[in-house]
Design a protein around this nucleic acid. Sequence first.
DNA 1: AGGACAAATGTTAGCGCTAACATTTCGCCG
DNA 2: CGGCGAAATGTTAGCGCTAACATTTGTCCT
Lengths: 375, 375
Amino acid sequence: MDGADRGGESAPQVVPGASEPGGQGELAGPDGPGEVGSTMPASGRPPALTDVARLVGVSHQTVSRVVNNHPGVRPRTRERVLAGLRELGYRPNPAARALATGRSRTLGVLALTGTLYGPTSTLYAVEQAARAADYQVTVVSLHSLDPGAVRQALGRLLAGGIDGVVAIAPLLDATDALSAVATRLPLVAVEGRPDGNIATVSVDQEHGARTATEHLLAAGHPTVRHVAGPSDWYEGAGRIAGWRAALEAAGAAVHPPLAGDWTARAGFAAGRQLAHEPDLTAVFVANDQMALGVLRALREGGRRVPEDVSVVGFDDIPEAAYFSPPLTTLRQDFTEVGRQSLRSLLEQVETGATGRAHVVIPPELVLRRSTAPPP
Amino acid sequence: MDGADRGGESAPQVVPGASEPGGQGELAGPDGPGEVGSTMPASGRPPALTDVARLVGVSHQTVSRVVNNHPGVRPRTRERVLAGLRELGYRPNPAARALATGRSRTLGVLALTGTLYGPTSTLYAVEQAARAADYQVTVVSLHSLDPGAVRQALGRLLAGGIDGVVAIAPLLDATDALSAVATRLPLVAVEGRPDGNIATVSVDQEHGARTATEHLLAAGHPTVRHVAGPSDWYEGAGRIAGWRAALEAAGAAVHPPLAGDWTARAGFAAGRQLAHEPDLTAVFVANDQMALGVLRALREGGRRVPEDVSVVGFDDIPEAAYFSPPLTTLRQDFTEVGRQSLRSLLEQVETGATGRAHVVIPPELVLRRSTAPPP
DNA sequence: AGGACAAATGTTAGCGCTAACATTTCGCCG
DNA sequence: CGGCGAAATGTTAGCGCTAACATTTGTCCT
């Protein structure tokens, strides 16, 4: 198990109205305590505010005030209402609430289908941050991020009545489709191009790539090759730019990057090509999954890692430490990405402002055994 | 990219009311066509049924009938209403609908945080199947699957007003917590213990494990060791059982399985132990990520795969084909799992029946280069 | 003790939609 | 050509909640 995955769930167990608006406790047990007077609701439908009100002998509005923790309810009254709430196992009806307030306390997440480490981790991180803020998360997944598909997915989300959207949309093209919507709906683009009119949160890809490249140059490698991600991806482009910048700053030769698509398969193909190049000593691969493919290709081509060739990846997927050899790579803090996205989004939701802030999170170099000085 | 991830999105682009209840089209352009008569709604809030009704000159109920594609509307009227709908960029308000009908067209998915291949793939598969049925998906993720956490997550989901739950809850213990809820709410457990009172959908773990083991025995290996998943996981227990059954049927020695937790780290630890055993010739590892660790440990221990030792995994993660050597493993069809889960769930939602069906999906052996006859 | 004011509680009116029933319109037959 | 029945449309009443305002109750001062 990934160590970070452990640690107790700490969402507070809230009795209705105890402290948070809309808080809810354990699964209610309406079929609980006895003494259900004649005030018991017709037992077909779940108890509503008025049922509790009738039972306790107050108005439904007072019950509502208790449930929502509004001020101006006498402690004695509050106690009695709370008891009634518990007795009937009341749960607020979210649809009614949404209808009355115009807010659903639901956020939409636009996610990319697949098992790419970054997007998946971000999805979960966003969900957790949202839960902490007492929001629900509705997911819409996409196979592709072309503008049409993005627009359609946003439409689906909009139809679902959400309060805001976190778009995990690392494709550069997607940004425009998002901008069009962002004027009408709070939206944060994760790993989106930050030059639009929209709020973004992203990991500093360029910085990471520069770090990786400089690490290799500093070890004495004359230059560094790059197995790139798709250049229409934000991350792909950023990593290419950072790698190139580092080489140019050091006056090292800049060979054209080899294009990949994030998959181990593509990494393997690129690695095979590289394995033929006699002066190859260092490769920066745009993500760990491709690096896995590169590693296998190099080994099969008779190049030892790290003795003959050094390899650096990007992502630090949990398996990276168990590649052969363990992979030096850049770790991205997706939990932080999720947290920041939510912060930025809720700020928009709550103030009504359109967001334009760009949050950038630095990645961190993790040294393992796949890098060494050149032979 | 994972090949299966490709292929065009085919969700139909529905004009409101064209064919499905609640269908919705592109992002509406209310700021679109001109000629906005005096019937235009006070432009603060989005257009409602009554706005369209007023514009067209019919009752809001007629508009509702058109939107929901109910019969008994004259073609001419329908046309006029559709035009009005389009002109104002009408979108049904889901909260109002949910309040009036008692159904939210939203399903909850209980998912396990982390980057485990199975649960993640299942989540996306369920989302896609739900979308095809015109349901939304709300996700609640969990770090751990102990009964308390499961109960709490279900409570959160319930508070969100969903129509049913798909619980991706592979832990045996979780089943009881689910049963408690299933009597009040449509629920399907994916990879849950099928002996409860609840509907389940799962891959036939035992069958898969037996297949893997038999494949190795058939190649001539005297016996097969097992690096197991946690035995309190449904998959973990099932794979142990299948492996054991195959060995016993063949009269082969049954060494105690080595316990793991699905991570590459655990696989590495187990692999190190195994590397010391001189008579080791074949290992069945309970998932691919652990198999990666085993592979590295064996190599570092001087045992060649497959020349000295054969290894079989489980899952067929996209990277498995790029391990060194490429891994023989069992592929699970998660798309089918998602589809079946949804079918079973919607059956419950729509008929009101409590589900008890157990759907089982067979896995498929994928032969690669990590298996060979013993030395 | 009598207000004056604040605190506590109650009342009313929607939010936007659907379901059930009421009414109108139309086609068609005797 | 009147009237019957079905088809088409309209009317009404909630769903459960919150927000705004109205009313009652309590508290404190002079």
